[in-house]
Design a protein around this nucleic acid. Structure first.
Lengths: 209, 209
DNA sequence: CCTATAATGTAATCACTGTTTACATTTATG
DNA sequence: CATAAATGTAAACAGTGATTACATTATAGG
């Protein structure tokens, strides 16, 4: 991807700085971890002065929040693509697919996942986009579980609200163990993706009637 | 607790700096978040010059690792106290108690939990103590699940290894949702502790035969 | 087309950070 | 009791997020 738009124009105005900063931020975080990200190095890599990013983001948190918004949008798309392909017959299968999409995305985008999960690096609640998309995912889960209950295929001992929270906590835990690099410490012998899917299967199979 | 040991002696040597630093670190993190912790402010609060902490910790990471070691020791004690009180009859009940102790500890010590979970702030693998105590907890889980299997009270469809990983991911997810402040966003109506226990009950009840 | 103005860049500066170094003081040891 | 080890200080370094005054470019209206 070309980070320097309009490269033939004079160099004073970058022309595409916002997007360039967001991209450079992600690759820089992937290199050195989010704790080591500095706006100044970001600016240097975008061939721009140290103060320039602050024309577009009021501070570092705002910049990372913008990265999070991009990331959350991509996660939402990944999820929607996955559950659209599923038939509408078995809501628990669709619920399973939702979890699979979430975990696969976290597996393949650990940096992005870390950023959308953190509440110290970004300003989650001030971003309408983040709040809404998070809520959308929750609503999808509620709808699927309610449908499963209506169809009588949900384990009758389970309260839907409790189940949805547990399911969220479960996939969040698996994903965070991955991005937090706890897999080694936990003596996981399987390939990471397989370990994730096995765990998910275990959880899903326990909610069916 | 008295952070200034031997207060009547001359002030040049603190006398108890290491422990004082660890305590001040925790309270400072609780105030401002771990991202905002600075060694210099730490030193200031301990009435010591900015360079003094580096006589005892080779860098900031080492200092936080020491905090993590203290924290992990306390978590281990909390867990052992809880499962000792349990009878030896029902290993799944003991497994449940283990999870309860873990979650209660995370609930009441979110700062400490965050520190022992992070792999960017501390140097987990270089600490024999951290690695060993983490492993100890895992071994307890394995022992309990194996015992449950022998007694025939474990759901026969479950592979013990997969179950242990899933259980860990589950409690880790619940705890991290708490320390990462995702409870609000997830529309949890219950008191946090109750929500955690309900979720744990749900998980545990699904593993029994 | 030309000019006023908004947008977007720079350079210099600020207070703060982690860390190191040379030196000072206290404690412990032989 | 002298000397070495431990533990403190002060000063300095490069790097940080952020702000300010100023420079340059893009743009919109007459």
């Amino acid at each position: 991807m070309n980070l320097d738009a309009k490269p033939d124009k004079t160099a004073y105005h970058h022309g595409n700085l916002i997007e360039a900063l967001l991209e450079v931020a992600v690759s820089l975080i992937e290199e050195k971890g989010v704790e080591q990200l500095s706006v100044r190095e970001l600016a240097k890599r975008a061939n721009v002065s140290p103060g320039a990013p602050f024309r577009h983001f009021k501070n570092k948190t705002a910049l990372l929040t913008a990265v999070a918004e991009q990331a959350m949008a991509r996660l939402t798309i990944a999820i929607q693509n996955e559950i659209k392909n599923e038939g509408i017959e078995d809501p628990i299968e669709t619920f399973h697919s939702l979890g699979r999409a979430y975990l696969n995305w976290a597996l393949n985008n650990p940096t992005h996942f870390q950023i959308i999960s953190s509440r110290n690096l970004i300003d989650f609640n001030s971003s309408k986009q983040l709040v809404e998309q998070n809520e959308n995912i929750r609503i999808i889960m509620i709808r699927l579980i309610n449908k499963a209950k209506e169809q009588g295929i949900l384990n009758k001992k389970l309260d839907p609200n409790d189940l949805i929270f547990a399911a969220r906590a479960f996939v969040y835990g698996v994903a965070r163990m991955w991005v937090d690099r706890h897999f080694n410490e936990w003596n996981i012998k399987d390939d990471a993706q397989i370990a994730m899917q096995k765990a998910l299967n275990l959880f899903i199979s326990s909610i069916r009637n």
